[in-house]
């Protein structure tokens, strides 16, 4: 945005202005996370001490809560389940959404518009009670109480969102590129896979990131379709095992929250640039 030549002083002033503004946002965004980390490293006596300074650790950092989480619960299994479920569900949804998104964005056939709207409408269906009838479907499919119950049901909320996002992205790709490929004798499927997809990578990464986050954080389906501890996801496992009636294992709960966020944070930081550019096209032309 800095256009033209500016004096050094002006540049420093502008930078200072930027930092001064971004810091409150950072505090707002990070403080709860900081507080989670602090809580997970504090001993219980200090946690429940009314006179203690709440956002410092004064009586020494302890790792007991993490040790409890890793040794006394099946946290690692839950993380593994979460990872498997998120990866498979996201991939499957991506394939479905890419096909549907391309079709809706690029091809002309009867009903294309109404179908596009239908995809969007499914996003509006209030999810509160949807899990009840869906639990029947899961039983009919014979997959209740397995991780497949989630792999199959998660696409229901991923596909509408990703399709919609990818539709916007595909529209930004110049039509001429495809036409050239078609003229050269490639089939439509080949054109989609070899020509269009490589150009849509940022959009796909973006949809994948969203999908991954949504599945990783999903709660209701994971709670109701899975009973065995060995098949639970991280979010459900942590809240199911560390809340005992009116007693909350605050330290371990927060430790679980911190550890469960780590994989996604890593993924995000890594793919952030794709993410931003992916959204650019998708959102703008949507």
């Amino acid at each position: 945005m800095d256009v033209g030549v500016r004096s050094k002083g002006a540049r420093i002033r502008s930078a200072a202005f930027g930092y001064a503004n971004v810091i409150p946002f950072l505090c707002f965004a990070l403080f709860p996370f900081y507080y989670m980390v602090i809580t997970s490293l504090k001993n219980d006596a200090e946690l429940y001490d009314l006179k203690a300074v709440p956002f410092l650790i004064q009586t020494g950092v302890i790792t007991d809560h993490y040790r409890y989480l890793l040794a006394k619960t099946e946290f690692l299994t839950w993380m593994k389940n979460s990872l498997i479920i998120s990866v498979i569900a996201t991939s499957v949804s991506l394939v479905i959404s890419i096909l549907a998104g391309y079709s809706l964005a690029r091809l002309r056939f009867r009903g294309v518009n109404s179908f596009g709207t239908a995809v969007f409408i499914t996003y509006l269906v209030p999810p509160t009670l949807l899990f009840l009838p869906l639990s029947q479907v899961v039983v009919w499919l014979g997959i209740s109480d397995t991780i497949w119950a989630l792999v199959v049901t998660y696409p229901t909320f991923l596909v509408p969102f990703s399709t919609w996002l990818l539709m916007g992205y595909f529209r930004t790709i110049p039509k001429e590129v495809e036409e050239c490929a078609l003229v050269d004798g490639a089939s439509r499927m080949q054109t989609l896979i070899r020509v269009v997809l490589p150009m849509a990578v940022p959009g796909i990464v973006c949809a994948a990131l969203f999908g991954f986050t949504l599945t990783w954080n999903e709660f209701t389906y994971a709670l109701t379709f899975i009973s065995q501890s060995a098949n639970k996801t991280a979010v459900v496992g942590v809240t199911a095992d560390l809340i005992r009636g009116d007693i909350y294992y605050w330290g371990s709960l927060m430790a679980g929250a911190v550890l469960a966020s780590v994989p996604i944070v890593a993924v995000y930081v890594f793919f952030l640039d794709y993410y931003v550019s992916g959204l650019t096209a998708g959102a703008v032309k949507g």
Binding site: F33, Y35, N217, A257, A260, Y268
Partner: peptide, 10 residues
């Protein structure tokens, strides 16, 4: 990014 079910607890 943090799972909502856990961040709201915090």
């Amino acid at each position: 990014v943090i799972p909502t079910a856990l961040s709201t607890l915090a």
